[in-house]
Design a protein around this nucleic acid. Structure first.
Lengths: 132, 132
DNA sequence: TGTCTGATTCGACAGACGTCGAGACAGTGC
DNA sequence: GCACTGTCTCGACGTCTGTCGAATCAGACA
């Protein structure tokens, strides 16, 4: 059924420290892309923050002004990149987040063990260089 | 001309803790989407990890099997969501990462206290079925 | 000034994406 | 068995995206 490609990606140093190799980029980019839609980003957060660690589709659908098939489509996208996992229980289907890949993405962006986060290089706000 | 919309986003609790509001999702999703392309992900990491904090376009272009205009297009995408900043110096244009939004994204994905979550979340199903 | 190099913008095109309605499938309950 | 509910798949449609070549813009230099 689902591909869940990104799940097995090798773990990754923050992109602020070393250039991301093409292979890693090819594997992780789809996960970022999946989060690149406001609906999916909200779906992901509803799933990841659900109490009990999982949430029913029937709780997700009414939260949006979209049809069932559309929500289902977005959920499949999240499933295919390995961000969530589905589980049918009787009539209902429950979705659950997969923290591993979420951590990989966060790690890549540099959510390091908190504390040593890179800090602003010299950068004044109003720079506006408009080199257009 | 550039939009740099996401830059001013309010900071955000991890999506594993609370549902991301539609507003925040609409603001941060474009940044994730920008990172959702392998080429842009690599560009972003080359820029963010560049020594001196910045890197010349002339160093970026030859690193890919793509034409100049295509690289320029991707760089503009990164610029428009506020992930990078451009600066023309003489003949060359230098790009620099903006750590603020990078940290926002990382934080959203889970400034996980490290060592906490394991892949398998609590798995017994708390039979929530009040979906009627 | 004229020419050269580096970077961006413009216009075009194929392919991917987001959305929907209709229909199919999986379980439950009578 | 049959009807009902919840979810997914399929096909279609309009829009967006990634890529390119050609043209344009911005500086440097003779």
């Amino acid at each position: 059924m689902s591909k869940q490609a990104a799940v097995d990606a090798p773990c990754c140093p923050p992109l602020t420290e070393r250039r991301v190799p093409a292979e890693t980029a090819a594997v992780l980019a789809p996960a970022f892309k999946a989060l690149g839609d406001p609906v999916r980003l909200q779906l992901m957060s509803m799933i990841a923050s659900a109490e009990g660690g999982e949430i029913c589709v029937c709780d997700l659908t009414p939260a949006f002004d979209l049809t069932g098939p559309t929500i289902s489509h977005h959920l499949r996208t999240l499933r295919e990149v390995g961000l969530v996992d589905a589980d049918r229980r009787g009539t209902w289907v429950y979705y659950r987040a997969r923290p591993t890949i979420l951590r990989q993405l966060a790690g890549l962006l540099g959510a390091l063990p908190a504390g040593d986060t890179v800090d602003e290089p010299p950068h004044q706000a109003p720079a506006r260089r408009d080199c257009s």
